[in-house]
């Protein structure tokens, strides 16, 4: 799954195009608002799905080497979060969909659900 596919299939807005926006291949999804839960997994090439809009999301993404972050329920990043994403070259996307719908759509793109 690429960012291009995500943007085509999920109604969303790109807030920041990361360094690897055109090249990244996303293989896994971590969804949740608790950052320690995200740190539990050790899958590579992840995208994070969350309603949390603080700097700590970008820092967590950096630690697990996530390719990008999708903010759900139409959430906008806090100014400092957006700045940090720009500085770290991390892709940031906002969708009006809720967590469940977003995960289903990502699951379809990954071929993990029908």
């Amino acid at each position: 799954m690429t960012f291009k596919e995500i943007v085509e299939h999920i109604s969303c807005e790109i807030i920041n195009k990361g360094n690897d926006f055109d090249t990244a291949v996303i293989e896994n999804v971590s969804a949740g608002d608790m950052m320690s839960e995200v740190l539990v997994g050790d899958e590579d090439n992840r995208i994070l799905v969350t309603a949390l809009t603080t700097d700590q999301v970008v820092r967590t993404a950096d630690i697990v080497e996530a390719r990008g972050v999708i903010l759900i329920n139409g959430k906008r990043p806090q100014t400092s979060m957006k700045t940090l994403a720009e500085e770290s070259g991390l892709t940031l996307i906002s969708t009006k969909n809720n967590m469940f719908t977003t995960c289903i759509e990502l699951g379809k793109l990954l071929g993990k659900c029908k």
Partner: peptide, 17 residues
């Protein structure tokens, strides 16, 4: 604290892991 994304109760277990 939970609204800031922390306090899932996974901190020390994650460190240990």
């Amino acid at each position: 604290i939970r609204s800031q994304g922390f306090g899932a109760g996974m901190g020390l277990p994650n460190v240990k892991r």
